[in-house]
Amino acid sequence: MKEKCLIIAEAGVNHNGNINIAKKLCLAAKEAGADVVKFQTWVTEKIITPNVKQADYQAENTGNTQSQFDMLKALELSYDEFREIKRYCDEIGIVFASTADEPDSLDFLVALGIPFIKIGSGEIGNIPYLRYMGTKKNPVILSTGMSSLGDVEISLRALRDGGATDITLLHCTTSYPCPYDDVNLKAMDTLRNAFGIEVGFSDHTEGIEAAIAAVARGARVIEKHFTLDRNMEGPDHKASTEPNEFKAMVSAIRNVESALGNGIKQPTCAEKEISQVVLKRIVACRDIAKGQVIREEDICVKRNDVGLPANTWDMVLGSISHRDYKKDEGIEL
């Protein structure tokens, strides 16, 4: 991963099966400051049986009772359409990525030139597929929604068995939208400490606060659902971020990154300049003659632009004055 946090606009299926909307999502993500715009790639018949019902949030957001199969089929884009989307991303200058939901789509995306393999939370524990992903030797970003620490360990082992070495874990709560009291950002620390690898956050909350806090807590990747309009029809729009809000999130994240600094506690250049007239210095609180032993009653601490800093108090006490001092003159040795 690069040094700054990687910000992924999760376009997902918010194109509603329409390539023109997909391209608009790419351009909007670019303009909002995302590093990557990411979709989902699958062949419906290869990922789901015909009669699986929609999740409650999907049924509520789509307003119908169709099966997941029918919903996904309507949202499926072809490989040729993804080739066109990738070309468009290259033209406008944003990185294209997509989550492959089955092996054939993974092969297609790797050949297309994705920068990393993104694995959705639904593949946690899918040992044969995770091992196959590992054989690609691409960097991997694994979402960890719906899982325990043990589940993550099993999935990591499968990826490494296949040959994956560059793996980032995204803490995630699979809930759309996710209530703030279910976010549990401290789980990022647990993942980092348990496995010793980089972590990030896949954010399903409404608003941008959780993503910003995750960066302050050390997230190296932020993934956030992205839509042109939350009022559009489709399963994920309502839990997604619109362009202006996403842009505000990106700006806040970049500011937080700048504010984190390097961890070295020392005065900045601006502070050094200000300290010349703000930090307290040792001054004469009455006239002092040359050759006089400096006693506590001879000196005090005040703001002054000349003189020894207050932290040299013990060194000055008992020393011999090397010249005459008037009241309020800064003491020097």
Rank of each mutant, 00 (worst) to 15 (best):
G12V: 04
L159H: 02
K272R: 12
D229E: 13
T190F: 03
A187M: 05
A34S: 10
G134K: 04
A259V: 04
S105R: 03
G218K: 00
D298Q: 14
A100D: 04
V278F: 08
R295L: 10
T227L: 00
I141G: 04
V250E: 01
A22V: 10
E271C: 14
K73F: 12
E233L: 09
R295K: 14
D151I: 06
P243H: 10
L170D: 05
N311M: 11
G150I: 01
A252S: 15
G318L: 03
E233S: 14
G113R: 11
M188D: 04
T65K: 13
H322K: 13
N61P: 02
K137N: 14
E45R: 09
L156S: 12
G63S: 12
Y176R: 04
H204I: 09
I19M: 07
E3Q: 11
D35L: 06
G122P: 03
Y79W: 08
A310M: 05
K265D: 15
K272L: 14
E123R: 11
D70A: 14
I208N: 02
V316K: 15
D104I: 00
T241H: 01
P267N: 06
W42Y: 15
D328M: 07
V43G: 08
P139L: 06
S319Q: 11
L185P: 06
L27T: 15
A74C: 15
I117N: 01
K302S: 07
C285L: 09
K30Y: 05
N16M: 04
A248V: 06
N16F: 13
A284P: 02
E209A: 08
K118W: 14
E60N: 14
S258E: 13
L112G: 10
H322A: 15
K137V: 12
L6D: 01
E198M: 01
L27W: 03
N262V: 14
V95H: 01
T205P: 00
E206S: 02
D287V: 14
S143R: 06
K224I: 11
D324Q: 08
R157Q: 15
C269V: 13
N64F: 09
I119R: 07
Y79G: 03
F69S: 06
I47H: 08
K290C: 12
E233I: 07
E245Y: 00
S275L: 12
V43E: 04
T174A: 11
I48M: 09
F96V: 01
E332Q: 09
G162K: 04
E273F: 05
G207D: 10
I19Y: 00
T144W: 00
K247Q: 02
S258V: 13
K137A: 14
K38P: 09
H15T: 10
G318S: 12
T144A: 08
V283P: 01
K247N: 11
E271Y: 07
A32F: 01
S319V: 07
A74S: 15
N138C: 10
R303M: 12
T227D: 08
Y176G: 00
E76T: 12
A310F: 07
